[in-house]
Design a protein around this nucleic acid. Structure first.
Lengths: 253, 253
DNA sequence: CCGGCTTCTTTGTCCGTACATTAAGCCGGT
DNA sequence: ACCGGCTTAATGTACGGACAAAGAAGCCGG
């Protein structure tokens, strides 16, 4: 801690805490405010300013009386475009189900590279056809490092969600990621699977899921574009995905 | 200010400030921290706690030395999917240009209803073909109430952005809105305009822009899906659109 | 009239303290 | 063994003060 430096004290503290977090130092418990006050010899106000950031990012929790902990289980998964889509389906009252088309371990050079791994790294591969009620909704493909996701091979994905199984069997909860949303044309195979006519458009969502900044999941999902949309609210705080079902149809001019 | 109430002091202060803001009390200038300390007879710490929320929401600005102001003009528009897309194009170094295909006043029952207006309300209609460098990028159609947007009829949209013209000629800056992103197939007319082959997929972005919660803009944009994607980061804070250009291409299986 | 300097205001950072509120754990009694 | 109350630990709220940094405005001289 350099008190003469240009960067504020609380920022130095925050940087140091992040480094210790990345080093896996606080996997069991996280020090409280007063503990940090003693460790770093700064005021509680400074500690709170640093912790404020970690708390808003959801890295640690804080509440009166409760002991400070790291990334608690009861915090829900950060909402991505896919979660938003599937939530919209559920809000329509349709039951969701999946047909598991593949669940095995294989290597994929392209995907492994995206995850920052060696090309030959074994990956757990899960391919599902997601149904909303009786109709096909999306084709979902996920790759995860076998080292972490091995236990998933025994799981049943017909009804449960991937992230639930991940947290339950592997003790891993993704903390963030990056998504790309594009429009693509369905190939013949995809049309057959999704019961689509010739020339149907699909929403393609690619997601790289991360745990504490380290990529851990690559996901490739194709969603029927004729019926489903990603909905979001925009305000000064940013872009908030909504679960409201899309209502309008397209009028072809 | 009730010091015995269950709600914290800073929250009462925040509520009161919001009420005064809604009443249009601070259109000229906004009181500083010390001014509020005197007005409400609370500590600066309490004032800062209340102001923290208004500042993160972007309602007021705060910086050393600068006088506190309300929603300054230099704050940029809340970032929507479209802005993210176009920023990605610019980050590639491509010049953006528009061809104005229509700019007039007309009535449209469907759109007017979406804006919460009478079906016969006159609307300023702007249709542009957006180019990234030499190639067509998107077909953009916007409707705004003529009552507000009348001055836009004299504007030149070849190079400038709609929101700049809106703020300059109409004194209006949108504060939020709702977007829907879908995948659609290009119609024949759209293919011709955008120079697309048969069976090309488009990203369709529909946006209802709002000013203080009241809808003021309906926008319908079709973006070439083969080359452009909406990119976003996901973390505990939510969904943050990125301006990074998409890199990957699709491998057709 | 312009440029540079000084002064002033405003927010950022940092310290200290005290009490209230809440959750969790301990402990003893039934 | 279970329930309830007490203790303890942790954060939330609120007060106080002091100095630093940085922009804005005014002053003054060239």
């Amino acid at each position: 801690m350099d008190r003469t430096a240009a960067v504020p004290l609380w920022q130095q503290l925050l940087t140091d805490l992040r480094a210790r977090l990345a080093g896996g130092e606080f996997t069991i418990d996280f020090p409280g405010e007063l503990a940090l006050v003693e460790q770093y010899s700064v005021s509680r106000h400074t500690v709170r300013e640093a912790l404020r950031h970690l708390r808003t990012e959801g890295v640690v929790t804080a509440a009166r009386g409760r002991r400070p902990r790291l990334a608690p289980a009861e915090v829900e998964q950060p909402l991505g475009a896919l979660a938003s889509l599937f939530a919209a389906v559920e809000s329509r009252g349709l039951e969701q189900r999946s047909i598991v088309r593949a669940l095995d371990v294989r290597a994929d050079g392209v995907v492994a590279t995206r995850l920052g791994l060696e090309e030959s790294t074994p990956l757990v591969y899960l391919e599902r056809l997601r149904l909303a009620g009786p109709e096909p909704l999306a084709l979902d493909r996920v790759w995860l490092p076998a080292e972490v996701a091995q236990p998933l091979l025994a799981a049943d994905f017909t009804h449960s969600a991937l992230y639930d199984e991940l947290s339950q069997h592997c003790g891993v909860r993704l903390t963030g990621g990056r998504e790309q949303v594009r429009a693509v044309l369905a190939t013949r195979g995809e049309r057959a699977l999704l019961h689509l006519p010739v020339g149907a458009a699909l929403l393609m969502v690619e997601r790289t899921g991360c745990l504490h900044g380290r990529p851990l999941e690559f996901r490739h999902t194709l969603v029927r574009g004729d019926r489903y949309a990603v909905t979001a609210d925009v305000d000064a705080r940013g872009y908030t995905l909504t679960t409201a079902a899309p209502t309008s149809r397209r009028s072809t001019p």
